[in-house]
């Protein structure tokens, strides 16, 4: 069984407002993909005097090989959790790249090719605390990214969090994962060749053998 997808260079950008937990999201996902999944990951962030309400950005580069340049400049995946961030970073998305938005916060998406969920409202209504929003995004992305395995990502997230907020974050992660399955559908076409073996549905594997 193939455990890892052969990734040349996969670039992810999380962007939004200060206070949305963008950096934490990048850190947890980066740790999950590197320590849990075994990829090489570099995580960088906008490093300025951002307070709550300012703009915030966090980049991940994921590869199965050594990463030379640590910053993202040609995005495979852009996660925009505010209109401002969406406007600013959409031009960096490469052709065929995937845009994910917070559908309540981004009222005017720059394209109709996007995937969106009302992450903040989901956190408020279904989890009970708005701070769980970033974990819902993490759960949704774990479904969408062909090389991420929910079981491993969830385990790594739990390890990174203090005891008292662990349970609620697992709940948020599962919610995001479930909703993404329902609304985003299967892995985007452009990433089909990156699917790791044990994530593929049974049928597909048997047809490949023939």
């Amino acid at each position: 069984m193939k455990d890892q997808a052969e990734l040349e260079r996969f670039e992810i950008r999380f962007s939004g407002l200060g206070g949305q937990g963008i950096i934490t999201l990048g850190k947890v996902m980066g740790a999950g993909l590197s320590l849990g999944h075994g990829y090489n990951v570099t995580q960088t962030q906008s490093y300025g005097p951002e307070a709550r309400g300012g703009s915030s950005r966090c980049d991940l580069v994921v590869s199965s090989r050594r990463i030379s340049f640590p910053k993202a400049e040609n995005l495979d995946l852009l996660v925009a959790l505010s209109q401002e961030a969406c406007n600013a970073y959409y031009p960096y998305l490469k052709p065929g790249g995937v845009l994910i938005i917070e559908s309540d916060m981004v009222a005017q998406p720059p394209t109709n090719q996007y995937l969106g969920l009302p992450f903040t409202a989901m956190a408020k209504d279904r989890i009970g605390i708005p701070q769980a929003m970033n974990t819902i995004v993490l759960g949704a992305l774990t479904h969408l990214l062909p090389f991420a395995v929910p079981r491993i990502m969830r385990k790594n997230m739990e390890e990174a969090l203090p005891e008292k907020i662990r349970a609620i974050n697992v709940k948020a992660f599962n919610l995001g994962n479930r909703e993404a399955k329902k609304h985003f559908g299967d892995v985007p076409q452009a990433w089909a060749d990156m699917v790791v073996e044990h994530r593929k549905p049974e049928k597909k594997r048997s047809t490949q053998k023939k």
């Binding site: 980066g30 590197s34 090489n40 990951v41 570099t42 995580q43 960088t44 490093y47 640590p70 910053k71």
Partner: peptide, 10 residues
């Protein structure tokens, strides 16, 4: 430099 100091890696 700032980039080396503030990049996270395994």
């Amino acid at each position: 430099d700032e980039i080396t100091a503030h990049t996270r890696e395994k």
